[in-house]
């Protein structure tokens, strides 16, 4: 009897490890087959040569990379993508933050109702929502008419960067709100009250207490929205009128229309690099916040 615990105690760590390995194996395999291999293929294509008409010549060349990084059009495209995504992320943050804060403070069924309301756009495809925006912002649409009604000349809102901005911001807001809510865990209403009783005005308590405490949520939301903005192509395609050149739309064009897979792969790897940079920035921000 007494020997049994000793034996099992000696074996348990090994058994636990084996179980862990067994449990991790399927997901590891799926990751290798579903993620690592395609990425590896993508990287390989980026060093192949595209032939006229969409063929791929299986040689090793740097020409996609040198061509891309030496071309002012593509450099501009990369900058555009990064700046538009940053701008959209910022807009989504500014618009989502008060909503998330209100949701965080709401309680009971009211909160559930509002949360469902916030999430509900995610149940509709981005394509449908984008067409909705096209109808709203179109030349004869309500927004333009309203601005005209006030006696002002409306700026072009559709088929240009403005449209992309508006559409992307709205499409990313639910993600931002959810990320913010997830990050608002540390925000205890008592802490705000403490600030207020110590003489902080609502603005001061926001600046000095609420904002710093919600910073992790802000960082998470921004990372998520930035990544989604860089990689979204449906909305820029539909609302950009062919005037807005972004990495994602260019990848689509190169892969689907021009059939230049090596160039499309190179651009895709570049997007991954940008994501990597965003992750590094995110963890640096988190470290500073801690």
């Amino acid at each position: 009897m007494t020997a049994v615990p000793a034996v099992s105690a000696g074996r348990r760590p090994m058994g636990g490890q084996q179980v862990a390995v067994a449990l991790l194996l399927p997901i590891a395999l799926i990751n290798v087959v579903g993620f690592m291999l395609p990425i590896f293929n993508l990287a390989r294509y980026s060093f192949n040569r595209a032939t006229v008409g969409g063929g791929i010549e299986n040689v090793l060349t740097l020409q996609n990379w040198t061509g891309l990084l030496g071309d002012p059009f593509y450099l501009q495209l990369i900058l555009n993508s990064v700046f538009v995504s940053l701008g959209v992320t910022l807009c989504a943050l500014i618009l989502s933050y008060p909503i998330a804060l209100y949701l965080h403070r709401a309680s009971g069924s009211w909160r559930t109702f509002l949360t469902v309301l916030v999430i509900s756009p995610l149940l509709t495809s981005a394509v449908v929502r984008t067409y909705g925006w096209i109808a709203i912002l179109a030349e004869e649409g309500p927004v333009v008419s309203a601005i005209r009604g006030m006696g002002l000349t409306p700026p072009p809102l559709m088929f240009n960067i403005n449209g992309v901005f508006i559409g992307l911001t709205e499409i990313l807001m639910p993600y931002m709100i959810l990320a913010l809510l997830a990050g608002f865990g540390r925000l205890d209403p008592r802490v705000e009250e403490a600030a207020r009783t110590l003489g902080a005005t609502p603005w001061q308590s926001f600046r000095r207490v609420i904002l710093p405490l919600t910073a992790p949520g802000i960082a998470l939301g921004c990372l998520l929205c930035f990544v989604l903005a860089v990689s979204s192509f449906i909305t820029p395609k539909l609302m950009g009128g062919g005037r807005v050149f972004l990495l994602a739309t260019e990848i689509y064009d190169q892969a689907i229309v021009t059939l230049n897979w090596p160039l499309a792969s190179t651009l895709s790897i570049l997007v991954l690099v940008i994501f990597g940079a965003a992750l590094v920035a995110y963890s640096a921000v988190l470290k500073r916040l801690d």
């Binding site: 540390r186 205890d188 008592r190 802490v191 009250e193 403490a194 600030a195 207020r196 009783t197 110590l198 003489g199 902080a200 005005t201 609502p202 001061q204 308590s205 000095r208 207490v209 710093p212 405490l213 916040l289």
Partner: peptide, 28 residues
């Protein structure tokens, strides 16, 4: 609230978690 000049101690203490002890005390 902020014009009432009251000092309040909460059951959960409600210290500002992102500030040091000295910063907490200096806040008011």
């Amino acid at each position: 609230v902020h014009d009432r000049d009251m000092g309040m101690v909460f059951q959960s203490y409600a210290l500002f978690p992102h500030m040091t002890v000295a910063q907490n005390v200096a806040f008011g």
